[in-house]
Design a protein around this nucleic acid. Sequence first.
DNA 1: CTTTCATTCAATGAATCACTAGAATGATGG
DNA 2: CCATCATTCTAGTGATTCATTGAATGAAAG
Lengths: 218, 218
Amino acid sequence: MTSQQDLLDTLAQVARALGNGHRLALLERLAQAEASVETLANTAGLTIGNASQHLQQLRRAGLVTAHRSGKQMIYRLTDERIVTLLGLLRQVAETNLAEMERLISRLFADDDAEGALEAVGRDELLAGLTSGEMALLDVRPEEEFEAGHLPEAINIPLAQLEDMLDKLPQDREIVAYCRGPYCVLSHEAVQRLRQLGYRVRRFEEGYPEWKAAGLPVA
Amino acid sequence: MTSQQDLLDTLAQVARALGNGHRLALLERLAQAEASVETLANTAGLTIGNASQHLQQLRRAGLVTAHRSGKQMIYRLTDERIVTLLGLLRQVAETNLAEMERLISRLFADDDAEGALEAVGRDELLAGLTSGEMALLDVRPEEEFEAGHLPEAINIPLAQLEDMLDKLPQDREIVAYCRGPYCVLSHEAVQRLRQLGYRVRRFEEGYPEWKAAGLPVA
DNA sequence: CTTTCATTCAATGAATCACTAGAATGATGG
DNA sequence: CCATCATTCTAGTGATTCATTGAATGAAAG
């Protein structure tokens, strides 16, 4: 009798590990590539000590593992399915919480001001790539790009966008992507490129979702 | 910049709603059928007041909705995908947390003592049903059976098992199922029926998983 | 062996959560 | 209108979570 509740309690511990915005940010970053505590702390905007504690909570919940490399501790996701889990959580939240729509529309407010461009869906992107009408732009930091990216994608980290315009093809529509649906990098890139006259849209997902769907990565 | 973190914080609120064993028990019960606060409190082993508060937390997270029916408040899941979400959480926990295996093996300890019968998987069950070699036994309370069950299943609530043995077919292997992988009802039923000489095994999932997989229900 | 660097551990206070018990609400039936 | 029933709200408690600080650990480099 009671062991059934013990199982649910243990399951609840895992869910509770997901119940903090900073830890979700750490997981989103880890979905791109394994990383050290310092790197993770920086991308999540946390102090090192604080990041370390959150990571340990994730480790206790079985969501990440750690191994030493010299002086650094390298963390990574234990399981590919965690990306799927987070995606499903996102879907459930988006369809059932009004608050989510409000926040999302705020994130997209800038885009709308520019002329209401719909993001590119996965199927449309696949079609555009095979027909040669679209070219992929990865605006994540080089480190994350190196660890894995969509096939044929060009990497221009957002900070160097204006310096590397010559790498962009002129004859195709550009589709920019980054870490995932809530990552602002590709939004920013699309805005800046459109002001420069480029024909460019955003991919509505990111690298982790692409990979978790079993699509080919480089 | 900050609105990205707001989104993750909101997502974390939903995850936190899942981060309590009692609330998971309530959700598991709601995955069977909608129910009143009192019913939910009873199956989850909570006081009415406490159950009410947990349900309201689930409602704030967008996981359940409530409507009045006479004096009663009837709660139900907002979204079919919540079952999938919980299933995925379970899978991730099972493969990455040693603690889970320990608890599961304890839940199965009685079965093993009986002669180590493997539970029936979904594919095997489908094959057994179409070939007519298996018959389905639903051991959940009548109320949950009425709200939906696997096709062709016979309902004998666990409490009345010995009184209704005549309803069981003798010529086929019996496959018992209940609420889900952690539900003890079908374990108990299998044990008792085997002592009576029946050829019977447990279905490794439950009604909600079957339905969420898009398989036909009655 | 000492220093340095990356990370973890331990202790604190503020905030939030879980449970209880009892009062308050809202629909129903006399 | 009054009484009843199901549920929710309120307040108070003890436990847990979170961020911060500074000390402690462990590997590497001089």
